[in-house]
Amino acid sequence: MLIGAVLSGLIFGLYFTLVGLGLNLVFGVMRIVNLAHGDFLMLGAFAAFWAFHLFGLHPLVAAAAVLVVFVVIGLPLYYLVVPRLQQARDAEMLSIILFFGLAQMIEAATTIAFGTSERSIPGRVLGTGPVMLLGQRLPSAWVFGAAVSAVAVAGVYLYLYQTRLGRLTRAVMVSRDEALATGIDVHRVSAIAFGIGIGLAGIAGVFAPFMLGSVTPAIGPEINVAAFAVIVVGTLGNPLGTVLGGIVYGVSLMLMQTYLSSWANLLPNLLLIAVLLTRPEGLLGRKVRRA
C-alpha cells in the first residue's frame, strides 16, 4: 500500500504542478494573486468538454487550442486590469479582492450558460485499461496528465532560461523597478507572462475531467486552495519550485488517503500552516525564489 500511495502521489502531484504553475508565474512576475485561477482552469475543462462532445476533438488537440485561446484572452485582460491595480499602494491585497470578484462572475456566467451538472470526458479517450508501474495499477489518464504537466514545466523552463523574453521575465521577477529603470518594457513582459499563466490554467483544466472525475462550474475555489498549497510549499514566486510543491502535495494526499482518509481534506491547510510556520520562504528558499 505504501509503494502504491507514493507512486500515485508522484503522478497525481505532477498534475497539481501544472495546476499551480500558472498561478505561481503570475505571482512571481506581477506580485498579484490571481484568485480567478481555478475558474480559468474550470473554463479550460468546459472548453475541452465541448470540443470533445461537439467536434470529437482529442484532449491533446484541445489543450493546444486552449493554450492559444487563453493566452490571447489573457493579454487584453492584463492591460484592462493589472496596470491600474499596480498603481495602488497595496496591489497584492487589492488583487485578491478584484480577482475574487472576477472568479465569482466567471462561475456565475458558466452556471447560467451550462447549468450545475457534472461534466466529464470518457476516460478511454486517453487510453483503455490501467498502466502497470512497479507492480502498481495507475489510470492511463493520470499518466497522460502527468506527462503533459512535465512538458509544460519543461516549456516554462525553456521559456524562462533559453529565450530573450524569458530572461526579461526573470529580470522583472527579481525587481520590477530595476527592470523598468533599465528600459525593459515591463508591461509587455508581464502581459505575456499573465497570458501564459492563464493558458497553463486552461491546459490543466483540459485534463481536470480525467484527474478529478468530473467538473462543475463550482470547482474553482477548491482548485485555488490546492494550487496555493502547492506553490507556497514549493516557494511562492518561483515557478519551477512548483514541481516540488506539487509532488509534496500529491504524495502527502495519497498517504493521507491511505492511512488517515477521513482527514485528507485538511491536507492543503496543514501543509500551508506547516510551511508558513517553519519555512515561510518555501522549501526551495529565497535564493531560488529570486530567480
Binding site: 478529478l212 495519497m254 491511505t258 482518509s261
Partner: peptide
C-alpha cells in the same frame, strides 16, 4: 470514511 469533496479514488480503490 473520506471527505465529501474527495475527487480521486485510485489509491483508495487499490487499498
Amino acid at each position: 470514511g473520506v471527505p465529501t469533496n474527495t475527487s480521486n479514488y485510485t489509491v483508495l480503490i487499490n487499498n
